[in-house]
Design a protein around this nucleic acid. Sequence first.
DNA 1: TCGTTCTTGTACCGAACGGTACAGATTGTT
DNA 2: AACAATCTGTACCGTTCGGTACAAGAACGA
Lengths: 190, 190
Amino acid sequence: MPRIVAERADILPALAEVFREHGYEGASLALIGQRTGLGKGSLYHFFPGGKEEMANAVLDEIDGWFETRIFRPLREEPDAAAAIRASLRDTDAYFRSGRRVCLVGVLALGDVRDRFAERIHSYFLAWRDALASALVRTGVAQEMAASLAEEAVAMIQGALVASRALQDSELFGRMLNRLEGRLLAGSNPR
Amino acid sequence: MPRIVAERADILPALAEVFREHGYEGASLALIGQRTGLGKGSLYHFFPGGKEEMANAVLDEIDGWFETRIFRPLREEPDAAAAIRASLRDTDAYFRSGRRVCLVGVLALGDVRDRFAERIHSYFLAWRDALASALVRTGVAQEMAASLAEEAVAMIQGALVASRALQDSELFGRMLNRLEGRLLAGSNPR
DNA sequence: TCGTTCTTGTACCGAACGGTACAGATTGTT
DNA sequence: AACAATCTGTACCGTTCGGTACAAGAACGA
């Protein structure tokens, strides 16, 4: 029997895409096997806990990506306005201008929300608070920053839904641009 | 065999709730039967086309509700600002302040999007255009109205995702209030 | 009272589901 | 060369899936 994959991290991207496209329940083991190129044997070797462990591994990777690429810069970057601009650019790239969906958002809407409630909660919380922190550092008042951040997080999720529903590939970009304008309205222009 | 339901319209509300809570694929016939109180025999008597026909019937009802309660008033009500305010109030009531989810939005994110693509598309289009029409009548320029309307529709969807993700029962209301402020910024106060 | 039509519960179908068991192939170490 | 550890394909488990078939009960006009 030939070896194909050395580490389970190697298949996480494919795994994530399956969950994104089909949701937790819609991602059958047959589909996962097909898209990752691994049989059930291998899948259960890497993920003894089955689908739930697979989903958690994917969520781990997503958490890690957003933490290093989005959340931490927003919290720590000295030039907060630049960090906000960069985070919106990275967000656009990550979601492929709306062609890709947010797995955490999908899980939040589905009936598996309770199973992953804590992870979903902390992901959204981290995003909102990191953005609020950056806004405060651009000179926005605490309360206003919290409102704007909450709005921004919802806007991004809503833009993903709307861009798919309206099948408008440019809607996501438009929305992010307007969002940038509103978030940085008080700070100096680039 | 006792008769329970006279018309299939009688079970649409329960049917809609099952689809909302579990998505299209997650709504199994067993679950539907349990929640509607009907056996498979009755379900297939009322909906010979199976689940797909059930979902379409639910979407029909949703379309109808929004058309009469939200879209038409937005397009036709002489006092456009009042119509916008009323539509946001009705939206809050319909989605139970975020505790209820938008079935059309859920379908848009899932892998069944293609099967219902046209209905999803026209629902979002109708909402956006009706709102834009009302905004124009309050004195907002055409282009600005289109932007605001697009933003509002996305915001509502995003607020549903965020309120569930953050498990914050007041988020949806806050968001609608801010939305009302932005949409009616140019018109006379109530 | 008798059919006829409408409605319903139940048994059942093949397929697909998530998950398990395990033998055999590959690999690295000795 | 021989060994254990690692990996993987396949067959199989019980359950649930969407959907079909159908007999029997209720309603109702004749």
